[in-house]
């Protein structure tokens, strides 16, 4: 218990330090990369609720991301509502869309669910592209107001990064509390075996709907933050590529864990930037790395290294126990060596 508390205290301190440190980053390019990575991390966490914890496939998450961003864009630019009110409406609306998508699709599984969610993403992108009067079509929406928090203008990258790191930390905490609760246990059960969930009194459809709603809402939140930061949005950000890229991030980092999507986002964001040095070869190298990781570490990078470290320690512990059982002084010697 003490160790756990120590661990969480360390994480909390790390989050606060990150938020404060973000105020001192001078390099504008780096600042932009960090902010976009943090938004992607929020999006990855939302996908992880569906894919990682509940075992549902979502190939249309860019749809929720786009709905969140466009709600802010439309309400802020056309109706002059404050950014924060727009953000609340965006989160609620994309959550509602998650619920609506969930209603017919909770009874689907595997490929069928994948196709249904993919269809959702394509429809949303189609609407964003073609409903010219409301969404501005391919030209998108410009001049979205940057948010101001307690008279701190978040249009400055440092403040925005500090704010977004705080949001990300809070979100991680909320998701952690959820998955360590009966709701998380129910999700884990219906992910691994729906029949078991049935006979233990878990209302399977209700819990799937909850996952769809939450996931949609959080993706909408990421979209709202994206709109607030970029101040310009267009449909090409919310296409199928975005959906695939985000699910790849989650699977690569390790779905079903909190650290996995965060690690996946960090690695892919910075890999993407670093590969810019290779010009035309960039996408080829990126693809090869992704395929290699998925082939050799299918469980994801975080679970792979976590399991390696655990097995290393448990092996060392067993060897020491064995040595101690043969010679009571041997274990101590082994440690000292």
């Amino acid at each position: 218990m003490t160790k756990t508390r120590l661990f969480y205290t360390a994480i909390t301190i790390l989050c606060i330090v990150c938020s404060i440190a973000s105020l001192y980053i001078q390099n504008l390019y780096l600042l932009r990369v960090f902010i976009l990575a943090a938004i992607t991390a929020i999006l990855a966490l939302s996908v992880n609720i569906l894919v990682g914890y509940t075992g549902q496939i979502s190939l249309g998450h860019a749809g929720f991301f786009g709905i969140g961003a466009y709600m802010v864009g439309i309400l802020n630019v056309n109706y002059h509502l404050s950014f924060w009110l727009c953000m609340v409406i965006a989160v609620l609306f994309s959550g509602l869309m998650g619920l609506i998508l969930g209603l017919p699709t909770t009874k689907l599984k595997g490929h069928f669910l994948g196709i249904a969610t993919l269809g959702f993403g394509v429809i949303v992108n189609g609407v964003l592209n073609n409903w010219m009067q409301v969404t501005g079509g391919p030209q998108g929406i410009r001049d979205i107001q940057s948010p101001t928090l307690f008279s701190i203008p978040l249009e400055y990258g440092n403040y925005f990064l500090g704010f977004i790191v705080a949001c990300l930390s809070l979100l991680v905490l909320v998701i952690y509390l959820l998955i360590k609760s009966p709701v998380g246990r129910a999700w884990s059960c219906l992910k691994q075996d729906e029949i078991t969930a049935y006979v233990t009194g878990i209302h399977v459809y209700r819990y799937k709907l909850l996952a769809f709603t939450l996931s949609g809402g959080i993706a909408g939140f990421a979209g709202a933050l994206f709109a607030g930061y970029m101040t310009f949005i267009s449909p090409d950000t919310f296409d199928l590529n975005q959906s695939i890229s985000i699910i790849t991030t989650v699977i690569l980092g390790g779905s079903g864990t909190i650290a996995g999507p965060l690690l996946g986002t960090a690695l892919l964001s910075f890999l993407n930037e670093w590969l810019r040095n290779f010009d035309e070869l960039r996408l080829v190298i990126y693809g090869v790395i992704l395929v290699a990781v998925i082939v050799f570490i299918p469980e994801g990078i975080y679970p792979f290294f976590k399991n390696k470290i655990i097995s290393l320690f448990s092996r060392r512990k067993r060897v020491n126990q064995l040595k101690t059982s043969i010679d009571p002084h041997a274990g101590k010697d082994a440690v000292n060596e």
């Binding site: 909320v174 509390l177 959820l178 609760s181 009966p182 709701v183 246990r185 129910a186 884990s188 059960c189 691994q192 075996d193 029949i195 078991t196 233990t200 009194g201 878990i202």
Partner: peptide
């Protein structure tokens, strides 16, 4: 039919779902 990724205690706790406190306020 057991959940292979979980340990014995967590598997048994799944059976307590109906009696668990599940309100959002309580959980958060």
């Amino acid at each position: 039919r057991l959940l292979r990724e979980l340990n014995v205690l967590d598997n048994i706790l799944i059976g307590g779902h109906m009696d668990a406190q599940k309100q959002a306020w309580d959980i958060l």
